[in-house]
Design a protein around this nucleic acid. Sequence first.
DNA 1: TTGAAATTCAAACGGGCGTTTGAAGCGAAA
DNA 2: TTTCGCTTCAAACGCCCGTTTGAATTTCAA
Lengths: 215, 215
Amino acid sequence: MSNLDQVRVASRSTEVTRAALIKAATAVFAEYGYDGGSVRLITQKAMANQAAVNYHFGGKDGLYREVLLAATQAFEENAFLDAEELDALSPEGALRRYLHQFLLPLVKRDRVCRYLRIFAWESVKPSETFSAFIAQSPPRIFRLAERVVRRFLPQESSSETVTFAMLWLAQQPMFFVREAERLAKPPFSLKFDDDALERLVDTLAGLSLRGLAAF
Amino acid sequence: MSNLDQVRVASRSTEVTRAALIKAATAVFAEYGYDGGSVRLITQKAMANQAAVNYHFGGKDGLYREVLLAATQAFEENAFLDAEELDALSPEGALRRYLHQFLLPLVKRDRVCRYLRIFAWESVKPSETFSAFIAQSPPRIFRLAERVVRRFLPQESSSETVTFAMLWLAQQPMFFVREAERLAKPPFSLKFDDDALERLVDTLAGLSLRGLAAF
DNA sequence: TTGAAATTCAAACGGGCGTTTGAAGCGAAA
DNA sequence: TTTCGCTTCAAACGCCCGTTTGAATTTCAA
């Protein structure tokens, strides 16, 4: 793995182990955060040896970096939400599309939801690994949110106002995805099926568009 | 401490040690969360012996419970934000007052800010101790937020709509307080002085009241 | 001043953590 | 079939964790 003049392709079993470790690590880090997620639990879930993490990724940190890479790529890929797609819609349509897309993990308990949970952990106490990752460019959710709010705000808005509004919009869907488990229990008891998701998109879009005063 | 027939009042030094431990624990738990905050660091900050935590509070868990008690009491006390005070204001005034009060920790780096950070940790992965604390009643920030949004929403709104709107409002100031440190750095570089706080209140109140479309 | 209770203290315990180690297993090229 | 490098494996290492222990010290009523 370390020799520059290595010719042999990685064997199948290498890729299998690596993939299993990354998948297990994604689940564990999403559940317990970086500090709280242990290598022992990850390797146990991946049915791999403890030392495999150090062998394949150089350590817990390297494995986490791999998970973050997959996470950022999942958000970067155009299939998720395209910037041009937002521009083609009406401002209202772009807003609804944005909210809908970032609320999807509520009903699709998929990979993306795990990534969002990892980001939630990082929002409380960023790890150095994570900080290095987002240092290059703001997370996609912020860039897309800025694109949406700029459709509404006048050209001459101060950059501070734009930032306030962008953050205000971006955190709205993140909150519901992050807190989904808690909101499912009393005293809130919110169950998110497809219909509830649509109603949530409606409510948030209405509030974001016209505010409380519209009611 | 454990005998039922104990008559003697707690000595001064007991209260001093207890208070120092609670203060140090508040800072440490706010910084690192419950799991991440170590008894060794707490006792070191409080200039107390490691065993003091177990002697005075029965263990790390008991000390944390004491911190949470102080935190919830700080939010419950009327001086912070009174429900009747909200009702006496106009809907718009109540909204502004609510936002201002819960954004205050941005400029007053005080005890309340530490409590909010502890709640932020708990929002990602609630500890059993914390869950037991809020099981009895929803946190005050939610109850007050519901009071505010009910001023705007029509009587016949579904409880789900009220809950959506309440959560939507409640999380707005929490986000900025929780992320204050991150937002102070690039790429956001938001510095929160008294003036910036007022502008943030203005922006959020405007967005919450009339939405993006008003711009 | 005395003596018992309350409090502090240094040291140790058991356990989980990430990582290292060196031998064993494995597969493909020779 | 032999050989050699890649991969796996069980075991151990050193570290930090929360807690326990029992003796030393302090406190304060009698």
